[in-house]
Design a protein around this nucleic acid. Structure first.
Length: 200
DNA sequence: ATGTTGATATCG
DNA sequence: GATATCAACATT
C-alpha cells in the first residue's frame, strides 16, 4: 500500500485544530526489520504551550521538553511513571512549545490489539525513547490519511485525563475522541464497577 | 484503592 | 546527591 506522510504544514497550525484533524488518521511505524505497524487514531489531547499549566512546556525549555519547543511535525516521546512511554506530535511554529498527545488507536495492521491508552499505544506500536525527536515527515514513523472510505466522524470532547494539578486548565475540554469508538480509553458514564452493580 | 517504577526538576 | 513529582496500568 502506498502511504505518504502528512506534510509539515499539517502540524504548523493551531493545536486544537490539529488535534481534531488527527482523529481518523493512520499512525504508521516501519521498523528496520521491515515490519509495518498501523493504527487509526481515535483519541487525542491538546497541550497548548507554556501558558497551559498541564503542558510539560509550562516548566520551561529543558533537555526533556526541547523537542516540544522545536519545529512542528516531530515526535515528543517521554516516559511516565517510570514504565510507560507516551507519544506526542509537536504543533505550531518553532518555539511555541505545543503538542498533541496520542491517547488511543484502533488497530489496523501488524500490531497487538491492546492500543487503548497512551502507554499501551506506544507499547503496541513499538515506540520508545529512541524515537525522541523523530521527524514525522520521514519514512519510518509518520501519520497519513486513511485510504479507506469512512463515514463522517462524530467528534466528542472532554477535560483531559490525569491533569487535576493544573488548576483551571484541568477543566478545559482539550481531549478529543471519536464518539462511540470501542478503543477510546475512557468514556463518560458509569464506571465498570457501577455497571456491574446495575446488572444485579 | 493501591503498588509499581524511573526520568526529571528542584533544592541543597 | 537527595527528594518530590508525575499527561498509566494492572490488580485488589
Amino acid at each position: 500500500m502506498k502511504l505518504s506522510p502528512l506534510p509539515r504544514a499539517f502540524y504548523d497550525r493551531d493545536t486544537q485544530l490539529v488535534a481534531r484533524d488527527l482523529l481518523g488518521k493512520l499512525l504508521v511505524h516501519r521498523t528496520t526489520n521491515g515490519a509495518e505497524r498501523i493504527g487509526r487514531i481515535v483519541e487525542v489531547e491538546a497541550y497548548l504551550g507554556p501558558h497551559d499549566l498541564a503542558a510539560h512546556t509550562s516548566k520551561g525549555n529543558t533537555p526533556r521538553t526541547r523537542v516540544m519547543f522545536g519545529p512542528p511535525g516531530h515526535a515528543y516521546i517521554y516516559l511516565i511513571y517510570g514504565m510507560h512511554h507516551c507519544m506526542n506530535v509537536v504543533t505550531e511554529p518553532d518555539g511555541t512549545g505545543a503538542a498533541v498527545l496520542l491517547r488511543a488507536l484502533e488497530p489496523v495492521s501488524g500490531l497487538d490489539p491492546n492500543t487503548r491508552g497512551p502507554g499501551r499505544l506506544c507499547k503496541a506500536m513499538g515506540i520508545d525513547r529512541s524515537h525522541y525527536g523523530a521527524d514525522l515527515c520521514g519514512p519510518e514513523l509518520f501519520l497519513t490519511r486513511d485510504p479507506q472510505p469512512r463515514p463522517p466522524l462524530e467528534i466528542a470532547n472532554s477535560p483531559r485525563i490525569g491533569v487535576d494539578y493544573a488548576g483551571e486548565w484541568a477543566k478545559c475540554p482539550l481531549r478529543f475522541y471519536i464518539q462511540g469508538n470501542a478503543y477510546v480509553s475512557r468514556v463518560p458514564g458509569p464506571s465498570r464497577r457501577q455497571q456491574k452493580k446495575n446488572m444485579l
